[in-house]
Design a binder for these strands. Structure first.
Lengths: 341, 341
DNA sequence: CTGTTAGCGCATTCAC
DNA sequence: GTGAATGCGCTAACAG
């Protein structure tokens, strides 16, 4: 048992060969004979040398096999969100297949600078809460792939949110409907509220605004107008925020007969509260969701929603990063008709 | 705009000071005057130098601020499990507070050797599916903290699983009861089944066997015997596995009037199926869970279970790692009486 | 308080 | 196929 950790140099001395030979045995099999290589590896194993030091390799090679997944929010929040965790699944399984490691990075961190030097690239899932990260990613020397939002000149994975929202809303709406919308992060407020005349945030870049565009396009086509006091802002796709909005909307008068929700989580919360209150769905209240999470499939009545495959997004984003793809790509979505419309 | 990335040496030259001064300005404020330091930092900012290269620091200092969280299973599975994701929350928030980064590591990986050189330590949550990892962690030169299982001589965070199981079972059981148990990973099988005479796995180290001990102690005290055909094995705490076990147990004859479940997820699935089948809970069927997840609090009737704070486990494990604690510690649990017993 | 120097452990030239 | 030399970018020790 050696007390101090073996280095490549130690091993080379012990085996009576040069350091390059040991290095090649581990990294470049073509540089030496098969028998010699295997002999060396066997010897190394015997003396307890498990290969070149990774920290040194990172410096020397400039690659670490570590990919940073930058989340929109704190890790705490994202990891319990079913949509985000499904995305993480897709990323992690693809990384694992390719021998890469996953570093989880919070979107409310100050900066990516303290990892940019040693990670091989970034997957950025949703617009980070700290917009500083976006600027840093934009000029990062390491590859970046964004998902559910865009950075100029960087590859991205998206669905057509406007069209998806339009499709589900078109399915739900009829002329004369009284419509409310549960939106996500539309204005700059930490709590659930109607948007009224508050300034909208990230109108150009946020998917929430694309979805809103789609909803409103469908409404307009049916000659329905939706005023700003019928549009709720929820800071997160979270059932607690949703519950409050649901209470407000279901006790408002006149009560809307359609509520378009920007996520399944908030749609389900509304659905539950409506049923508790004895409101008939869809006869008295129609509800649409967004995402297509598993819980929505299990719930009765089944939620009408737009399915996007979050895990596939994760897979595609990871592949795009690993293969140095530079194009932006748009994934398909699917209208899923349930019982709530 | 410099095309090639600036190094500390470049900067030192440009500013006309030595490399050590630049290094000290960033790393050891006490080594130079405040004014000089601030002047240097300002200059660096101006020329676009954001600090010493982290990859080089990792090699030089031997620390990276990266902590690996080794999960029991694939990341895919763990990230959607509410108990695990709550644990991850605790870990990630504590790491973030301390400026550390989180590397997620799958328990079905081949080896920890490809990260051991550059991470600062390991938190191991549950016994990794690949037992090889346990051997490697046992001799790791980097600090290790285990949670929900033990490695000799390494600090750990646990609850008293035997006692917790005993307590909830004692609450549920009455003399003459017909008892079934839904256990986790009791035998080596990838599918739901009764354990019969199959060889039990990890009897000494697994928390599932401690819980089983507790259940059986409570049963024995009430003069109840539980045969091996009344004990189910589920490979994971997953609703799909649970559904199958639930079907089996609810259609078995004589049907048990108490089912002790080793997780809330599987208890809830059993509860749902029982209600679908028109079985009255708790009159005809009593159910206990384990963990105390949020969904169990929301569900009606409320599940009787044992609450353990997974997020606190995460916090404590992280603190133990960062503070180099060496003692094993046991966290409290709490019996949560609901409506299902 | 500041500058010089010697590695951290390795991979890659380039000669042989 | 192999071995010696250079430096990846930095920090800690030391000398001034």
């Amino acid at each position: 048992m050696n007390k101090t950790k073996l280095t490549l140099k130690d091993v080379a001395e012990q085996l009576g060969v040069s350091t390059a030979t040991i290095s090649n045995a581990f990294n470049r099999p073509d540089q030496l004979s098969k028998t010699k290589r295997e002999e060396i590896l066997a010897q190394c194993k015997k003396i307890g040398y498990s290969g070149p030091n990774k920290a040194a390799q990172i410096l020397r090679k400039g690659t670490s096999n570590i990919v940073a997944l930058v989340l929109a929010d704190s890790i705490s929040y994202m990891v319990s969100d079913p949509v985000a965790s499904t995305f993480i699944k897709g990323v992690s399984s693809t990384l694992q297949e390719n021998g890469k490691h996953l570093l989880l990075y919070a979107g409310d961190s100050d900066s990516i600078l303290d990892v940019v030097d040693f990670v091989d690239g970034f997957i950025c899932y949703g617009q980070p809460r700290n917009s500083n990260l976006v600027s840093e990613l934009a000029v990062s020397p390491k590859p970046v792939v964004t998902v559910d939002f865009d950075i100029e000149d960087k590859p991205s994975i998206n669905i057509d949110n406007e069209e998806a929202a339009y499709r589900v809303a078109s399915h739900a709406l009829n002329e004369g409907d009284n419509v409310a919308i549960f939106g996500l992060r539309l204005i700059d407020s930490p709590s659930t509220c109607r948007i009224y005349d508050n300034p909208l945030i990230d109108v150009d870049s946020s998917i929430a605004h694309r979805r809103l565009d789609g909803y409103l396009r469908a409404a307009t086509e049916k000659s329905i107008s939706v005023s700003n006091e019928r549009i709720w802002h929820l800071p997160e796709s979270d059932r607690h925020f949703a519950r409050q909005a649901a209470k407000e909307v279901l006790t408002s008068s006149p009560r809307p007969n359609v509520v378009l929700c920007m996520s399944d989580i908030i749609a389900l919360e509304l659905l539950h509260l409506a049923l508790e209150m004895g409101i008939k769905v869809p006869e008295e209240l129609k509800i649409t969701g967004f995402d297509g999470i598993e819980e929505a499939e299990r719930t009765r009545p089944r939620l009408t929603t737009v399915c996007q495959s979050s895990s596939e997004k994760g897979v595609e984003a990871t592949k795009a990063l690993l293969n140095q793809v530079t194009a932006k790509s748009t994934l398909p979505f699917e209208l899923q008709v349930g019982d709530t419309v």
